[in-house]
């Protein structure tokens, strides 16, 4: 009897496609790595700085720039609260407008377009524009985060409204309820728990983002951090980073707790 062989069947059956793809991946990697322009001397110098920073993580300095750090964090927190609230309030009408089962087509398209633009750009890019319009400072940050929050919250909320069971809505319309009454009695009870959950989630994101938009002048702890790095103040930078991690973890825990209670 002849020897029976077995090989694992390849993932891509067509050998030409298989080899072609493998070759394409190899060529890409070769070109990509080849086009890296690394200044190895600078990297070698940097390793020392890296070690210094790593050491600083164990000796964070909260006090010598304590006033700046406190100011930065208060600004970040204030921006987070205000922007999430504004975003939430404005997101509700946008979400209703972007729900196909509640809104006429033109309104739907406008709201969906707004959501798409707000979601496509990183917060920091939007911050550049708002800083140019409103000047440096936390107000530009609030505008940025509120703008991003509207798109984020409205999209999730609109999906929820569209996924809603249409029967209770019909029942309320049938009792003679007006459009606002329909929203209040038919839509709000269904989406309210979800709305709170999404807002908590966004509060979390807004805090993280508030820590970076300061880099382009939109206020918050990011500006303080950027300055600390520019001055090579490792201990202060380490202190700020550790505080950011702590606050992010805390807020994640709290928002997880609240969202868990709502379920």
């Amino acid at each position: 009897m002849s020897v029976r062989v077995w090989h694992r069947p390849p993932m891509i059956a067509d050998p030409r496609l298989r080899w072609g793809l493998s070759l394409a991946v190899l060529v890409y990697l070769f070109l990509a790595v080849g086009s890296l322009e690394v200044n190895w001397q600078r990297v070698a110098e940097g390793l020392e700085r890296g070690a210094a920073f790593a050491a600083a993580l164990f000796t964070p300095d909260f006090s010598s720039r304590g006033a700046d750090i406190l100011e930065g964090f208060l600004e970040s927190l204030a921006m987070t609260f205000v922007s999430t609230t504004i975003g939430l309030l404005l997101a509700v009408p946008v979400a209703v407008g972007a729900a196909r089962n509640l809104s006429p087509l033109p309104v739907y398209l406008i709201c969906r377009g707004f959501i798409a633009i707000s979601r496509s750009f990183q917060e920091i890019i939007i911050a550049i524009l708002f800083v140019a319009m409103l000047g440096f400072g936390p107000l530009a940050g609030v505008a940025t985060l509120a703008f991003a929050s509207i798109g984020f919250i409205a999209k999730l909320l609109a999906e929820d409204i569209e996924a809603m069971d249409p029967k209770p809505l019909e029942a309320i319309r049938a009792t003679g309820g007006s459009a606002t009454q329909t929203l209040h009695w038919g839509v709000m009870p269904v989406v309210l728990p979800r709305l709170v959950g999404v807002s908590m989630y966004r509060l979390d994101i807004n805090f993280r983002e508030s820590a970076i938009i300061g880099i382009v002048g939109a206020g918050g702890i990011g500006a303080t951090l950027n300055t600390a790095f520019d001055r090579y103040e490792y201990d202060t930078a380490a202190a700020i980073l550790l505080l950011i991690i702590a606050i992010v973890l805390l807020s994640e825990y709290v928002s997880g707790f609240i969202r868990g209670r709502l379920r």
């Binding site: 020897v3 029976r4 062989v5 077995w6 090989h7 694992r8």
Partner: peptide
């Protein structure tokens, strides 16, 4: 790598 001894393959068949 799924390179089992030939005896195992035979046995499996």
């Amino acid at each position: 790598l799924r390179r089992f001894p030939q005896a195992d393959i035979e046995r499996a068949f």
